[in-house]
Design a protein around this nucleic acid. Sequence first.
DNA 1: CGTTGTGTTGATATTAATCAACAAGTGTGG
DNA 2: CCACACTTGTTGATTAATATCAACACAACG
Lengths: 251, 251
Amino acid sequence: MSMARARPLVLDPNRRDDPCAHCGARAYSVCSAIDSKDLDRLAALSTQIVVDPGRSFIEEGDAAEHFFNVTSGTAKLFKLLPDGRRQITGFASTGHFLGLAVSTAYSFSAEALEPMRICRFSRPKLKLMLDDFPAMEKRLLEVASNELVAAQEQMLLLGRKTARERLASFLIARADMPSHCLGHQPGHAETVLLPMTRNDIADYLGLTIETVSRTLTKLRSEGLIEIPSASTVVIKRHAALEAIASGSGGH
Amino acid sequence: MSMARARPLVLDPNRRDDPCAHCGARAYSVCSAIDSKDLDRLAALSTQIVVDPGRSFIEEGDAAEHFFNVTSGTAKLFKLLPDGRRQITGFASTGHFLGLAVSTAYSFSAEALEPMRICRFSRPKLKLMLDDFPAMEKRLLEVASNELVAAQEQMLLLGRKTARERLASFLIARADMPSHCLGHQPGHAETVLLPMTRNDIADYLGLTIETVSRTLTKLRSEGLIEIPSASTVVIKRHAALEAIASGSGGH
DNA sequence: CGTTGTGTTGATATTAATCAACAAGTGTGG
DNA sequence: CCACACTTGTTGATTAATATCAACACAACG
């Protein structure tokens, strides 16, 4: 099977038209106004990169010279405190944009969880691109708005939810993610795949690995989920888990 | 003293050219490409609103019919859980944009802390405006990017910082805010004014009012700050407080 | 096979929350 | 002007949730 050329941006892997709850993309394309001819021009402006699991491609504090679009795979995005405490601010998968910030330095680090393909633009070339494709700028504004909403939801989780509610929220959010973000079937997926370690989950939810482990065990013992393997959770009672996630689940 | 007309968007109150750490505005204008003739056209598209302290002008869950720009005053932005737990996701002052989200419903509520003037656009008119002023769209993307960076910083605070570090971060951030956001002198202000209650601070930092009160008392007893009145904090040892805020302050 | 990384479970410690009392300020009406 | 209620903030005693410390199970991998 031959690929004409690696496409610089992620287009329509499976033709669904509802917006992605995670990244807001419609039809999983960067911008409907960008046709395949435009894509060739974009390809000329960008560099395709492959990143192995465990490798970082953005380091907090480094000069922000590039702008990225994730073509496949997943990265964790995080910030560190001097003593090593870490907060994972999000996971970036297919279609996500990284490094948009106005600042001259990256405000977070990014490390691949799975093998990744990334499309990279230098900042000057990003500027060219945005000037050439105003629709692209509109798209980026939509994406940034969606991420802001997600960030505020995460602040609610980190500031006010219990460990139990955090885990329930995390699982529900992963279950409701569409296929292009996660690699499984869309809708309320019953089976949730967790490509990240317990440590990553803990650092994403503002907890310790022990609390994550204990809380998952408790949810399992209550029949809300099953854990066939450490990286797989099956949601048995979606509504009940959702109630816990929203803070109306009792206990 | 006569005002020709209430300007729909905030322009250059005091001519400073460095970007606002909080909202990213340069020269405290919405967009340098918008001149006063354009402003008149924008005024025709917008409605000027006054909001009294304690009044809400955005309710989480309501249909997102409007887009707002804060002309003066400060609002708290927050999300609620069903049992009343609250997370304040930010404070919006002069120059801030609200309600940009792609979603059809507001994802947060907004309530005035001080008397406010707001410039309101209906969504269809926002669309008109953005189509007419592409520079405005660029500006909004910059603003959204900056807010995203601030949101991630807040996630680090909520997920990984101690109560002491949270208060120090909060005070340092307020001290470093430029005058157009706060109404006092720019730079490292020594005196920080807190227009919000202890309850608001607690809900912003993911703590209780008692912990906020105790922690401030402790910082005072250590000589790092003074508290001449409940709504005023004087920073005595900025560098030490900053070290605590960054997580390298010991204790 | 041992080694290493990852995850689970148990015992204990610690931070911040909760419960409670009180102080200080603000506004109201007599 | 003062008594009163009401809001806001502070401080103390106790509790509870989660972190920390520790042991062990298990799988992946050389």
